[in-house]
Computed example of a mutant assay.
Amino acid sequence: MTVSVGKIVPLSAKRTWFLSAVLAAFGTVVCLGIAGFRANLTPSEPLGLWRIINLDRAVRIGDLVFVCPPVTDIMREARRRGYLRRGLCAGDIAPLIKTVAAASGQVVEIDGDVHIDGKRLPLSQVMLMDGQGRRLVPYGGGVVPSDAVYLHSDFPGSFDSRYFGPLPTENILGLAQEVWTYAP
């Protein structure tokens, strides 16, 4: 019985360079991810590079935070519709960058706009249809539960607590810090 040994063909210099560049880029992305850096590709906040900063205190109204959405039917549908990107949170969802607009015990009312403890939240109009004409179901309002926050973005088309309600504070990864961003 004879065994044929295949010929080993060396990679061309261009292929070697390209493969090296791809591996270097991948390695850089992995290292930046481990160091807490994230790319924001949605218009809810400026586009670009952000960093997750450890939150060594209680979360406050006005904090800009990274938060992992819980795996719920609302979030699965949002992912299916393309409102949420792929990422490292449970359910293969990317963390959101949102501002804490209300905390435990505060009352959220929705009547076309969001009101927190009776005061209108600026830039909070609730949409009933998304950009593709699909129905959006607004959060019904109520008291923000213990250990939860109501999250908001000033961007009119943002998918935030106007639609999914308060999220647990345990889902907050940390404060969101702009590193290198561009606001279109």
Rank of each mutant, 00 (worst) to 15 (best):
S4C: 12
V5F: 07
V5W: 00
I8Q: 01
V9L: 00
V9G: 07
R15K: 01
L19H: 03
S20I: 03
S20P: 01
A21T: 09
A21R: 12
V30Q: 03
G36A: 07
T42D: 09
S44I: 02
W50V: 07
W50Q: 09
I52C: 14
N54I: 01
D56Q: 02
V59I: 11
V59A: 08
V67P: 09
P70D: 14
P70G: 14
T72G: 02
R76V: 10
R80T: 15
R80I: 12
R81Q: 02
Y83R: 06
L84V: 08
R85P: 02
L88C: 05
C89E: 10
I93P: 06
I93M: 07
L96V: 01
I97L: 08
K98F: 04
K98P: 02
K98W: 09
V100M: 10
V108I: 15
V108K: 05
E109V: 00
I110D: 00
V114A: 09
V114H: 08
G118K: 03
K119D: 15
R120H: 09
P122T: 02
L123D: 15
Q125V: 15
Q125I: 09
Q125L: 15
V126F: 03
M127E: 06
L128W: 13
D130K: 05
Y139S: 10
G140R: 03
V144C: 14
S146N: 15
D147N: 15
A148W: 04
V149I: 07
Y150T: 06
D154K: 01
D154Q: 06
F155S: 04
R162S: 10
Y163T: 02
P166D: 08
P166R: 00
I172W: 07
L175D: 13
Q177S: 14
V179F: 11
